[in-house]
Design a protein around this nucleic acid. Structure first.
Lengths: 237, 237
DNA sequence: CGCCATTTGACGTCGATTTGACATGGCGAG
DNA sequence: CTCGCCATGTCAAATCGACGTCAAATGGCG
């Protein structure tokens, strides 16, 4: 998998979801971007794209606006509404009026590229998008008694540093980034393991381990399970 | 750090540094963006812009490329090299060839806008660049005393959080989405269980359970039975 | 080898859903 | 107006699946 949960995109290659119904154009884009080392995921219509965007751990979404069944704008808005993290979305479209662009941004796009475009510019914008800071400008997250510094890879609760294995670190970061929203088990699994999750439900075990570190030594538990949904961090702002 | 750094993003207005030597254009941009509520900082040449970017707590930099004394590209690269945080940089320039754009991104730009441009597009791109996760702003339904946040998976009535099992959550969401219309039993059954509904009429039991949670603790019932039709939420807008 | 991180499988518990039995109430037929 | 039926409300017991917990197995790495 790739989608490297927990890391900032350190590498120059990304998991990219392309939602585009024109097979020729899609083929070109896929060839070009894969030649650059990216991993392409493909959806030919809006519904499929939405589904993929919600469950797949992609780093960026390239979204055509003219799609069968469902307009790209509504797909974009729904990704924003339902995704548990803010995946960058780049709109690709022939619609080039000012109103079109404004509408695109208003629906939650991060960038907007008018067809026809140079593949090299697309690649440059993808790189620029993927390295934008995802959460505020800060590598620091502060959630109730928790302070997380992604750069230093350190998590502190009530002044005490938490000792976290790589996987537990990713897991905590995921919960922290989604806060105060819950994260579904599926989403966690997808972002921790991608397409090949462990056969057993080892997420249970890891959540248990995370609790040992994050909650056990303290009075109030931070990690809350939302039954048959997933988990969330519980803390006052 | 940016003026708003450290705080959660509460506002849609930013500290913006404009580096641009053309006074007329600069004036237009400043007027337009200030009218939108942003706070503008201004530098007329590359040196001043660089100094400002390194010490001022701005949220975003708008950088002209054709500057006296020092080219915008080198200013951009130096900001990236020396700043202790990754401030978003949007390049504004008349240079419109593909190579120009690629060079801009290669020097660390986050976005690239070719002159002449519409001020509205500039504003939209600024928002997209500076956008942070809107906490609490997620998708909300508000029905009378009821507030439902799908993203947070939380329902609140009169300030009190309702504890809902997965099925009851779906059920309430169904009613809320249909509001103020009633939903037929068949429709509910279909959307809760699809093709294989439980053999008994367990919808009755679930509506009962939902009432225990949503209505029982309060004065006025919200859930209304429409005899031989289905159910509806009853509330004033 | 020995250490650490992760995975696995087993088990007990608890919450969620279903079921069936019974009570209540609206509404049309007579 | 009353009876009786059918839709609905109520409840507790039964079933089922999700979750927490743990210890042991696995696997990479020095």
């Amino acid at each position: 998998m790739a989608a490297t949960a927990g890391k900032l995109p350190l590498s120059d290659s990304f998991d990219i979801l392309l939602v585009e119904d024109n097979a020729d154009l899609a083929g070109n884009i896929i060839d070009y971007l894969e030649a650059l080392g990216h991993r392409l995921h493909y959806a030919a219509d809006g519904e499929a794209g939405l589904r993929e965007a919600l469950v797949s751990p992609v780093d960026i979404v390239l979204l055509d606006l003219a799609l069968p069944h469902r307009d790209g704008l509504s797909v974009c808005a729904e990704i924003r509404r339902r995704a548990d993290r803010r995946v960058p979305i780049l709109m690709l479209t022939a619609r080039d009026t000012l109103d079109d662009k404004l509408s695109g941004f208003a629906h939650g796009a991060d960038d907007y590229l008018v067809k026809p475009f140079a593949l090299a510019e697309l690649a440059a914008r993808i790189t620029a998008l993927a390295r934008r800071p995802q959460l505020g400008q800060s590598h620091r997250l502060s959630i109730g008694p928790l302070i997380i510094d992604r750069q230093a890879r350190v998590a502190i609760r009530d002044g005490q540093e938490l000792r976290l294995t790589p996987l537990l670190w990713k897991l905590l970061l995921l919960l922290a980034e989604a806060w105060p929203n819950p994260v579904s088990r599926d989403a966690v699994t997808a972002r921790l393991w991608g397409d090949e999750p462990p056969s057993s439900d080892s997420l249970r075990a890891h959540v248990h381990l995370l609790r040992q570190v994050v909650d056990k030594p303290f009075d109030q538990p931070l990690i809350e399970t939302v039954h048959s949904v997933g988990f969330r961090l519980k803390a006052e702002p």
